[in-house]
Structures are given as structure tokens and as C-alpha cells.
């Protein structure tokens, strides 16, 4: 447990020392939102506060692409030497756990930076802010749980960037659909009764990808 804590701290420290990477990903997010704004503006109107379904779909799609790009860095853009060093000093379970925790923190930052930008540029259809915050939190957790493992898988192959998207999108889809479903409840002032079950399903999916990651990562790690 202490190992995990130190590894997470190491990741944050490294990130802090090269701040351009995180500002790069924040800029990626902002320019994607702006791209959507311009595209919708040309198509007839960028205020989506009256079209919550479109708002939610675009929000999660942009978050998905941001997550792929942000989390791809965790294993793919790592030098072989550094990987071998980690292999020697830490157990695989604490490596994957620390990466998932770190990526969750990163995704939380990105998601909660993305929400105000979205609301500013595309209007605000969200009525139930606490529920949407909970959904966003679960989304950040789910994206990092699934994509951290996918990034570790893709890092072993050639053209890892493309492969990350190919491998990740079908795996992430149930999570994405559930996130959109739960988000649709947040545009209403009252919470529909099926939302509880959907949140439970969301948690179950996250638990599945987390536990399979922890179970399978040691085998992947040995392939170094």
C-alpha cells in the first residue's frame, strides 16, 4: 500500500516537472470543445441548452477522446529503460494500481475542467448538478480503469497510438452508453427511479475492468 502511495506521488511529481504535457492535454480538450462550438455554429446554432441529448453525447465523446490521449501516455510514451527500472523496483499490482489512481486523478482534473468550458460555450442543460458531478466522477474512474490496461496492452505492439483506439473503443462502449444514460437523468429536476440501477451497473462495470486489470497485469508485465 505504501508502494502504491509512493508510485502515485512519483507520477504526480514527474507530471509537475514537465507541466507542458498536462497543459497540452488541457489545450486539446479546450480546442475540441471550441471545434464542436464552431462546427455547430456553422450548422445552425451552438446553444445546446435546449438540446440536452446532443450536449451529453458530445460531452462524453469529447471526454472519451481526451481520455484516450491523456491515458495513452501512461505506458505507451514510456522508455524501455524506465519500464525495466519499474519492473525491478515495484510489484506489478502496485504499478497498475498506482497508474489507475494517477490516471483517475488526471481524468478528474480533465472532466471537471471540461464541464465549465462546455457549459460556457455550449449552454447548460444540466439541472441536477450533484448527480452530474457523480456521473462525471464515475466516468473519470471508469475511463482510467479501462484505458490504463488497454494502454499497457497496446504499448507492446507497433503503432501503439492507433491500436489504443481500436482496442479501447469497443471495450469502453458499455461504460460510455451507461454514462450517457445516467447523464440524461441529470437534465430533469427529479431523478427517475431506474437511475439507481444504472449507477449500480456503472459501478459493476468499473469493478469488472478494475479487477481484471489487477488480475491480468502481472502477466503483461512479465512480457517485458
Amino acid at each position: 500500500m505504501k508502494e502504491v502511495f509512493f508510485l502515485v506521488r512519483k507520477e504526480i511529481l514527474l507530471e509537475w516537472r514537465q507541466r507542458y504535457a498536462i497543459s497540452g492535454i488541457l489545450l486539446y480538450l479546450t480546442s475540441s470543445v471550441f471545434l464542436v462550438y464552431m462546427a455547430l455554429g456553422t450548422a445552425g446554432g451552438a446553444d445546446l441548452s435546449q438540446a440536452p441529448d446532443t450536449w451529453i453525447a458530445i460531452f462524453w465523446i469529447v471526454m472519451l477522446f481526451t481520455a484516450v490521449n491523456a491515458i495513452a501516455r501512461s505506458f505507451i510514451q514510456e522508455s524501455r529503460g524506465l519500464r525495466l527500472y519499474h519492473y525491478i523496483i515495484a510489484s506489478p499490482v502496485s504499478i497498475i494500481l498506482s497508474r489507475v489512481i494517477y490516471n483517475t486523478l488526471l481524468m478528474l482534473l480533465l472532466v471537471f475542467a471540461g464541464i465549465p468550458v462546455f457549459m460556457l460555450v455550449l449552454g447548460n442543460p444540466i439541472q441536477n448538478v450533484p448527480l452530474f458531478a457523480l456521473t462525471a466522477f464515475l466516468g473519470a474512474l471508469g475511463f482510467s480503469a479501462a484505458f490504463t490496461m488497454i494502454s499497457a496492452i497496446a504499448s507492446h505492439a507497433g503503432n501503439a497510438g492507433t491500436l489504443m483506439a481500436i482496442l479501447g473503443f469497443p471495450v469502453i462502449l458499455p461504460l460510455l452508453l451507461l454514462l450517457i444514460k445516467v447523464s440524461q437523468a441529470t437534465v430533469l429536476s427529479a431523478v427517475p427511479e431506474q437511475t439507481n440501477g444504472q449507477i449500480f451497473n456503472l459501478l459493476a462495470i468499473i469493478m469488472i475492468s478494475l479487477s481484471t486489470s489487477i488480475l491480468l497485469f502481472p502477466y503483461l508485465w512479465r512480457a517485458n
Binding site: A146, M149, I150, I153, H156, A157, L167, P170, V171, P174, I205, I208, S209, T212, S213, L216, Y219, L220, R222, A223
Partner: peptide
């Protein structure tokens, strides 16, 4: 090894 890991992971996710 890698494809076995993905096979199991994807099956669990599916």
C-alpha cells in the same frame, strides 16, 4: 501473452 491478456480483458468487458 499480450493477445491472451486482451482476449480475457475484452471478454470480461463484453
Amino acid at each position: 501473452r499480450i493477445s491472451a491478456v486482451y482476449n480475457i480483458f475484452a471478454f470480461a468487458a463484453a
